Each structure stands twice: as structure tokens, then as C-alpha cells.
Simulated scan of single mutants.
Amino acid sequence: MFYNTPMPPPRDPDRLLKARGADTRPDGRFEPYRRERDSDGWDIPEEAHLLRTEVVTEKPRSIITRNTSPDISFDRSINPYRGCEHGCIYCYARPSHAYLGLSPGLDFETKITAKPDAARLLERELARPSYKPAPIALGTNTDPYQPIESKLAIMPGILRVLRDWNHPVTLVTRGQTVLRDLDLWAGMAAKGQAAVGISVTTLDPPLARALEPRAPAPATRLRMIRELADAGVPVRVMVAPVIPVLTEPEIEAILTAARQAGATTASMIPLRLPHEVAPLFRDWLDRHRPGMAAHVMNRVQAMRGGRDNDPRFGHRFRGAGIEAELALKRFRLARTRLGFRQAAPQLDCTRFGPPPRAGDQLSLF
């Protein structure tokens, strides 16, 4: 089902925004009521306050999420956070905040839920006799290395559990805090049990700042690729999302820069605008690129069957039509020319098992 909503209401004049992607707080699609600001006739100015990030903790009963989607390459994932302070306006995970009764707009990037008990829950789940190992994907919904991770440090605990159990893991991130855990990633990669994907949307710093206000700058992401690769970690550059008109001309340049930095594999995904993301992105275009807004959305719809979004399996990550085919062909030609591998290395599941405990009998082999 395609989802379209009217333009969100104007900015709350009592709030000051600094480095935020969304400009409004539209209600989620599950809410029974819609809120709108309306003047009561009293012209009484109020002091404006800077909108700051709020973090609350969650105590889930399990930490591994399963999926059976036919067009996703993994069947299990871990997300230490709900919401993401990076504030990328196009983020496909924004609609997930509606399940919490929060807005996919400003709430998504200012009301973050953290799961500090993730490592303990993970070890408990890995220890179940029925558990069968397969690569666990990190960062599939929101970025585990978003800014708050530098203070909460949930990821090192997760990685130590995976390392001790010899469990393979993959990561998708654009957060530079990943370099804090470089020794853990390098150690697991040396055993063929880790691979990292770094998302690079654009090489243009001002555009990146507007699209992804609290994410690292393009030069920092290339440095992340270089340091991970130098440490022996297989790195995939993710040219995602490819936004027609805005970032689509950079496909070859991004691949070239990432290859020079040490990335060995590459992937590409056209812009997706599910549910509330479509009106939020349209609002962003009107604020930041008003002269290009109609052109961008016409090109987006040309890849999505005339709609803002096409959620069908097999189409959502590729798009359809001539526009999508040309972008994919350009990507594949550049990938081949630059010497990227066609597929990521297979991770080793054969060593999985509980870590040795004090007093355990040593193995003879």
C-alpha cells in the first residue's frame, strides 16, 4: 500500500533548531488525532528554547530481531537504539518511531531509546541450545554508532560477546565512533568473522550537512574506510541513498574515492520514501532546494512507478524503469572499472561456540 500525507504543519516558533534534519513534528500514521497550532488571539511572545536530544533506556526481553524478507540478505539483526540523532532527512527508519507513539519527524532525531543491557541479552540468546549461528547484522534500522554511543558505549559489550563466541557480524554505519572499537573489529576480521559497510551519500560537504546534519562529513567517512581497511577489516562502500538530481551525478566519484580509501566491495540503493518519509523529504526540498524540488520528485517517481515510494519486495531496493536501470548500469560499470569485488567475503560460522570458562577441561585437539 502506498502512503501519502499532506504537508506537515509549520515549525513550532517556540523551539530553536540546531543541526536537525526535520523541521516539524508531524503525527505518526497510527495516531487517532492530528495536532495543529492555532493562534488564540493573544499576542504574548514566549522565550524560545533550543530543542535538545533526550535519551531514555529500554529493557527488552530479547535483543536479536528476526526477519523473513525475501530481498534482505540476513535473517537476524541487532539495533541498540531506536531513533537516530544523525537526523538524515531521507532515513527509511523514521516511520518506525510511529510504533512508539512518537513523530517520525523531530521526535525520531531528538527522542532516542537506548538498550544498555544488549550485551547480556545477546549472550543469553547465543547460549540457548537451539541457537544456530548465521551473521548478525548491526545498524539495519538506526545507526549503532550515532553520537550518543560515544557516551553510552553499548557496542563494545556487544562486540566482545560476539568475539568470545566466535560469532560472525556485519555492520552498516556512518558514525566515526566505530574507530573507537577498531581493535575489536580488526580482531574479528582476522578470523573472517566481521565486515563493515560505510554509507557515503555525497562528497559535497554543504549538501551533506543539510541532508545529514549530525552525521560525519564526507571526508571523515572516507577516513573511516581507510582506517578500517588498513586494520584488515573488509569494507563495503554503500552509495546510498542515490537521490536523483542531488547526489546521483556523484555515483562514479563516490566509488572512486572509496576505492582509493581501501573499500573492496560496493553497493547502491536508490532513494526510498516510505510512509511519513515522503512528506518530510518534500518539506526538506522546499526549504533547502526549492528550485530543484519538482525536478527531484519527478525523477524519484520515474523510478517508483509514478509514486513517491514502491514498497514491493524486489523493487524497493532497486527501483524500476529507465531511470533506475541507467543509474544501476552506471554503478556496475564504475564498480568493474575500479576493481571492486562482485560479492562480499563469506563470514566464518564454523568456529561458533561458548567461550572457555575457568576450570573447563582443555580440548585434546
Rank of each mutant, 00 (worst) to 15 (best):
Q301L: 08
R316N: 14
T256E: 14
W284S: 03
L280Q: 05
R299A: 06
L285F: 01
A253M: 03
I269R: 04
A258I: 03
A266M: 04
N309G: 07
G319Q: 08
A266Q: 02
D310P: 09
G339K: 09
L255K: 03
E276M: 05
A294W: 03
A266P: 04
P311C: 03
G319V: 06
F331P: 07
A278Y: 02
Q260E: 11
R341P: 05
D283V: 00
I254G: 02
R318A: 13
H295A: 07
A320T: 14
E250W: 10
R312E: 12
I254R: 04
A253T: 07
Q301G: 03
A278G: 07
L271T: 00
R316H: 11
R307A: 10
P345H: 10
A324V: 05
A320I: 11
T336C: 12
M303A: 13
F331Y: 09
M297P: 02
H275E: 14
D310W: 15
L280W: 02
R332L: 15
G314E: 08
M297K: 06
R330E: 08
A261R: 04
G262A: 00
T264I: 11
T264R: 14
W284M: 02
V300A: 01
E276K: 03
G262I: 00
S267N: 14
A327Y: 05
P290L: 04
F281K: 00
R332K: 13
R316Y: 07
Q342M: 11
P311I: 09
A294R: 12
A302K: 02
R341L: 09
D283L: 06
R289G: 00
R299G: 00
R287A: 10
E276I: 04
L333V: 14
I251A: 04
A266F: 01
W284Y: 05
L338E: 01
F340M: 06
